[in-house]
């Protein structure tokens, strides 16, 4: 990448923030970096956890954790809506009748806590519902176009960190677009194939594929291409074997 793309810029912000704190890049430092960079006051990542609908994985401050947990308590809210498969939720004005009608229990408490706008972005890989990346602002107003686009990129990095954690992969050293890239079709085809080979769900299959690429230190797309070309199978005993 020679010129600066939005992804480069955002990744630069994420790594600089972690460096300034003297910690490796993590979900926590990423949420904090997003809250500092974007015109919002708090950022959280919640995921589906087994049959429990939501678990707050990380939050940039007490407000976001409080509001995420509030949704669990009252059983409604934007994050829950996204976690069960809804589209993104962008509410520029939380303190209004329309928002109240949408979430009658959540909104009054959220407004009370100081939230005036929220933006919940789904974290997904095809049918895999990984989680939700939610930003809370203490002032009303939609995110401007460029900030929204940056929020999507932050969410994309958050998605990868959540997936890494689930696959037991360590914190990425460099720009994760290289060998963690999952934008290529063979990665998703291989995921489908592995789910049949192992008799597991698609999310589990994706996790196994990523873990395998990581432990071998090889690009995800290369390992995936081998699976698609049937030069490699995944066996239910957790090992991948060469040849067929």
């Amino acid at each position: 990448m020679t010129e600066t793309t939005r992804a480069d810029r955002v990744w630069g912000v994420v790594t600089a923030y972690a460096e300034a704190l003297g910690v490796p890049v993590s979900l926590r430092s990423l949420c904090q970096a997003a809250a500092a960079r974007l015109p919002v006051s708090a950022v959280a990542v919640s995921v589906r956890s087994g049959r429990v609908v939501s678990e707050v994985l990380c939050a940039s401050g007490s407000l976001s954790r409080e509001l995420e947990e509030l949704q669990l308590t009252v059983g409604e809210g934007p994050s829950l809506q996204v976690l069960v498969g809804g589209p993104l939720v962008l509410v520029g004005d939380l303190d209004c009748a329309e928002s109240q009608a949408r979430w009658p229990l959540f909104v009054p408490a959220a407004v009370q806590a100081g939230a005036r706008a929220l933006f919940a972005l789904p974290l997904r890989v095809g049918v895999i519902r990984v989680g939700v990346f939610i930003l809370y602002a203490d002032h009303p107003g939609q995110l401007p176009a460029e900030e929204l686009a940056e929020a999507w990129v932050f969410a994309e990095f958050a998605r990868r960190l959540v997936l890494d954690e689930q696959a037991g992969i360590g914190t990425p050293e460099g720009y994760p677009v290289d060998w963690l890239s999952d934008s290529r079709p063979e990665v998703h085809q291989a995921t489908g194939m592995i789910s049949v080979q192992l008799g597991v769900g698609i999310a589990e299959a994706f996790s196994r594929l990523r873990a395998r690429a990581f432990t071998e230190g090889r690009p995800l797309s290369t390992v995936a291409a081998e699976v698609v070309a049937r030069r490699r199978r995944f066996d239910p005993d957790h090992t991948a074997r060469e040849g067929v």
């Binding site: 995921t191 489908g192 698609v228």
Partner: peptide, 26 residues
């Protein structure tokens, strides 16, 4: 934001189809 959402949804649809292709292929 509608544009961003619609583009994202389109890209996501393609991923869903790739996953299903893999299942059928296998």
């Amino acid at each position: 934001h509608v544009l961003v959402d619609q583009l994202q949804t389109a890209l996501d649809s393609r991923v869903i189809i790739e996953q299903a292709k893999g299942i059928i292929a296998e």
